[in-house]
Design a protein around this nucleic acid. Structure first.
Length: 460
RNA sequence: GGCCCCAUCGUCUAGUGGCCUAGGACACCACCCUCUCAAGGUGGCGGCACGGGUUCGAAUCCCGUUGGGGCUGCCA
């Protein structure tokens, strides 16, 4: 079998969302695991809604995910002549006809019909193919078309339920279905892998494909289940906050995103969930993809992200996390490097990094109100701080010594270490949660620690 | 409304007629560990939408019902 040729065909009408990303991933996996090619085709035939910035967004999102493509992206807007030419051939062969009906006229005529859609009013009027007239495909009146789909089986559509659909708008520009089919044929596409929302349009595509070139074998179709929101509706660019870049900007890594997306609708034979790209490439099977829609669950994505972050070699974690910590005033790379291992095992997203280390860089910690209230309300807080202020100056400045010393201070006041460390943590970091305290104090230094303890004691 | 697709714990899934008293993961709860928080460990909660068939036997096959979704545009 010759290597397959796939295409990912997004339209630049909004930001690139996770549903598109998964479609791209499935296309990429199938192409690459069979030594085939992946064409990136920008479906920008709707000039009203397309924006160049969205095209850039698609390209950068693909690169971020690590999905490459072959050759230059194909721009449909640059291939209009080819679609119009195909339309003209259809018109001349009598397989399509010109139409001047307005939407209002069609609605007025067809109101109450059992089979909705265009009524074929212009079929035999012999209107010329020129500006001002739309071109419609002449759908067969009888018979049916069966779509052969790797995932769905063989859904059959009666021709009587398919209206004479528009190929060219009255301004002469091609519609999606025409451009789509002409391009798939011209580019030698062997597998059409796309979202299930296109399944209903596929018989039209098959009809068109056969009308254009009956000798050319049809591509293999694979309609993958939709990604849905919590209301089980198809993910929408406008409605749902699922832009890929949104996740990138929140500190999600591309690897866990890719891993999670692959598992939304597919699973390996055993129970593994963390799969490398190589493992996905080896084990993914398009024909094993699920049939039912999947909810995009940020909580599970977050879990994957945390797992990947923890599994990073320390140097790599520092490299990806540093830009986030760098935003904090007074950022100190050496101090950050020391704290990094303790931060790495705690953050679920990179955006959480600053809150674990900012106290090291700022002149004074930002004291969280709730955290302060939690120690201000306890009468032991002052005594703990007093003892620490008295004894820290002469203590060996290492984590073990500080641990033991603080443990002793706590016992003196009838507190376990968990309680005893609380006022010190809040005084020094401003928060009740954070990296291990005594390691933090070591990095902070004795002088700054004492200054903060005294400041907090004064505030009590 | 018409056409098409789909239906296992809250979520993602394993399951392709007997291995299922339905397995795993996320989330949630409890306990353990523990300087906070995580991580880790142990345990728990929780599901085959419903009704008919077929079969010695059904989550798995068939039919119907219900529910959800997609398409139905001179959007893609």
């Amino acid at each position: 079998m010759p290597p397959p040729r796939l295409r990912f065909a997004p339209s630049p009408t909004g930001y690139f969302h996770v549903g598109g990303a998964r479609t791209a991933l499935y296309n990429w996996l199938h192409a690459r695991q069979h030594g085939g090619e992946l064409i990136l085709r920008i479906e920008d035939t709707d000039t009203e809604r397309n924006k160049e910035e969205w095209v850039d967004g698609i390209l950068s999102a693909m690169r971020w995910l690590g999905l490459d493509w072959d050759g230059e992206p194909v721009r449909q807007s640059a291939r209009t002549a080819m679609y119009v030419d195909a339309a003209r051939r259809l018109y001349e062969a009598g397989l399509a006809y010109a139409c001047d009906c307005t939407r209002e006229q069609v609605e007025a005529r067809t109101r109450g019909n059992k089979t909705p859609g265009y009524d074929g009013f212009c079929r035999d009027r012999g209107l010329p193919l020129e500006e001002g007239y739309a071109l419609r495909f002449r759908t067969p009146d009888t018979g049916s078309t069966t779509v052969t789909d790797l995932i769905r089986g063989t859904p059959t559509f009666e021709h009587s339920t398919i209206e004479d659909f528009v190929l060219l708008r009255s301004n002469g520009s091609p519609m999606f279905i025409l451009a789509n089919v002409v391009d798939d044929a011209d580019l030698g596409i062997t597998h059409v892998v796309r979202g299930e929302e296109h399944l209903s349009n596929t018989p039209k595509a098959v009809l068109l494909w056969e009308a254009l070139d009956p000798a050319r074998p049809l591509p293999v179709f694979a309609h993958i289940p939709l990604l849905v929101n919590e209301k089980r509706q198809k993910l929408s660019k406008r409605r749902d906050p699922v832009a890929l870049e949104l996740y990138r900007d929140q500190g999600f890594l591309p690897e866990p995103m890719r891993n999670y997306l692959a598992l939304l609708g597919w699973a390996p034979a055993d129970g593994r969930e963390v799969l490398s790209l190589d493992e996905l490439l080896a084990e993914f099977r398009l024909e094993d993809v699920n049939h039912s829609p999947a909810f995009f669950d940020v909580q599970k994505l977050t879990h994957f992200n945390a797992e990947y972050i923890r599994s990073l070699p320390l140097a790599e974690f520092i490299a990806v996390a540093q830009p986030w910590a760098d935003d904090v005033a007074g950022f100190d790379p050496a101090a950050f490097t020391t704290m990094a291992p303790l931060v790495q095992e705690r953050v679920k997203t990179l955006s959480e990094v600053p809150q674990y280390v900012d106290f090291l860089f700022l002149d004074e910690p930002v004291i969280d109100d709730q955290a302060w209230a939690s120690i201000a309300g306890k009468d032991t807080s002052a005594a703990i701080l007093d003892d620490a202020i008295a004894e820290y100056p002469s203590a060996p400045w290492d984590a073990t010594a500080l641990h033991d010393l603080t443990l002793a201070i706590g016992e003196r006041h009838g507190l376990k270490l968990g309680k005893a460390q609380a006022p010190i943590r809040v005084a020094v970091t401003g928060r009740t949660v954070g990296p291990p305290l005594f390691e933090s104090l070591v990095v902070l230094g004795r002088d700054r620690t004492l200054t903060r303890l005294q400041a907090a004691r004064g505030r009590l």
